[in-house]
Simulated scan of single mutants.
Amino acid sequence: MTERLAVTDKAKALIQELVTKHGDLMFYQAGGCCEGTQPQCFEKGTFFPRMNDACIGLAEGFEFWVDRDLFEYWQHAHFTLDVLDGFGPGGFSLETPLGKTFKVHYRMFTEEELADLAPVQRNA
């Protein structure tokens, strides 16, 4: 089965640092203008996905949700969660005080991958 989400080693290390400080996490990638499409990291239970948003996989065991409209646009793409040094467009994400920004790199799935995609979970 083709996974929809991968996590770089650099992002894995930052996630572990955030888990140590904050406990369980969750990720949400919106499609709005103000926060751009930068993934945001929150303490689990402090942000709630909207109806019909899509959970595309787990980042180090934590749900990675995508805005329903953004998912419709990017449903044929693989997401790789990475991290960059610097302050991104969103200031609410847990990595911001550390001078880091989560970032997603996209690539289109191949025909073979599309035929065997992992299902998404929808928020009801």
Rank of each mutant, 00 (worst) to 15 (best):
T2F: 03
T2I: 04
T2A: 15
E3I: 07
A6C: 00
V7T: 03
T8V: 10
T8E: 11
A11N: 12
K12S: 15
L14A: 09
E17W: 00
T20V: 02
T20R: 02
T20E: 11
H22F: 13
G23Q: 00
M26T: 14
F27N: 05
Y28N: 04
Q29T: 05
Q29F: 00
G31F: 01
G32K: 07
C33E: 14
C33W: 14
E35I: 04
G36T: 08
G36L: 09
G36V: 07
Q38D: 04
Q38T: 10
P39V: 08
P39M: 08
Q40N: 08
C41V: 15
P49T: 09
D53P: 09
D53T: 10
A54C: 14
A54H: 13
A54F: 02
I56M: 00
I56S: 00
G57F: 03
G57P: 02
G57N: 03
L58Y: 02
L58S: 06
G61M: 03
G61E: 04
G61I: 04
G61Q: 04
F62G: 00
E63N: 08
R68G: 10
R68A: 15
Y73F: 11
Y73W: 05
L81D: 04
D82L: 12
D82I: 12
V83Y: 13
V83P: 11
G86F: 14
G88M: 08
P89M: 10
P89Q: 07
G90H: 03
G91C: 11
S93T: 15
L94E: 06
T96H: 12
T96G: 01
P97A: 03
P97S: 06
P97I: 08
K100A: 08
T101E: 08
F102W: 04
K103C: 02
K103G: 00
V104C: 06
Y106W: 12
M108E: 13
T110R: 13
E112P: 03
E112Q: 14
L114P: 09
D116R: 12
P119S: 13
V120L: 05
Q121C: 03
N123S: 10
A124V: 06
